[in-house]
Nucleic acid binder design. Sequence first.
DNA 1: ATATATTTGTTGCATTTGCAACGATGTCAA
DNA 2: TTGACATCGTTGCAAATGCAACAAATATAT
Lengths: 142, 142
Amino acid sequence: MASFMLSDFLPYRLAVVASRMSGAYERRHSSDSGLSVPEWRVLAHLSQSSEVSVREIQTRVDMEKSKVSRAASRLEAQGLVAKVVNPNDRRLVSLSLTSEGKALMVRLTPIALQFQADVRALLGADAEQFEVSLNKLMKAKL
Amino acid sequence: MASFMLSDFLPYRLAVVASRMSGAYERRHSSDSGLSVPEWRVLAHLSQSSEVSVREIQTRVDMEKSKVSRAASRLEAQGLVAKVVNPNDRRLVSLSLTSEGKALMVRLTPIALQFQADVRALLGADAEQFEVSLNKLMKAKL
DNA sequence: ATATATTTGTTGCATTTGCAACGATGTCAA
DNA sequence: TTGACATCGTTGCAAATGCAACAAATATAT
């Protein structure tokens, strides 16, 4: 039997590409934003759905709730996010962007879209098919 | 302008899929092996190239050298890997699998290959093209 | 040969992470 | 209502991580 090749192993390759891509994107915006990846995810999610709980973000954004909670606290300390107890259900916290947070997202969005465009350009004609497969993997119960 | 959609963002999707896939694979073998991901990577790399330094693994396997060093130490403590100073260049450490380490890889290799086959089956006819694109991203300087 | 610079692997340290426990709130049934 | 149970967000804690500093070994230059 041929010896096992880690460099051909799908989970490995995916992890390496994902880590490099996250790093590359982080380098592009961190000098402006100073955000970590978890903070970026929370901020970006809030920009598309204005009033959300920690739990909502946890499920939508694929992060542990403690990670979300801590990222939200850091964002609050930076003045980018407001945390208010939900009056209808006082267990929930309503997270929303401050005007400062919105302003940051206005600056970050074009950077994100440009980065994504660059990646797609790199893939050329295969980009669309690649994303279809990626969606399959997202939906699959791995 | 349409609001930014994190769920469509490539670095995000890639990170989520990679993390889930690594987790799924880890669940399949950890009950047998007890290995963490860094330990698995070092062990798997050693199985395909018998005598290697920490630096070699660091570059080939895309891990910080401290991560490699600590993973190797844990593997040594478990009796799976032998660490010897290289007599030609005494800065280097020669890592190699013990017979116990080889035996573990013999058990793990079919599990890994089966997992990969399952993922490819999930992607169906698109699997090949997906891996071509993944290779493009691996080679790109992101 | 000697001094300087580079490479290699380990370790200290601060930060981040995942997990479980917890208090607080809310739901449901009897 | 009361009591048992579930849900939400935070926090304590141990482990993992990234980075810089470091000692040892080697390479390079003068």
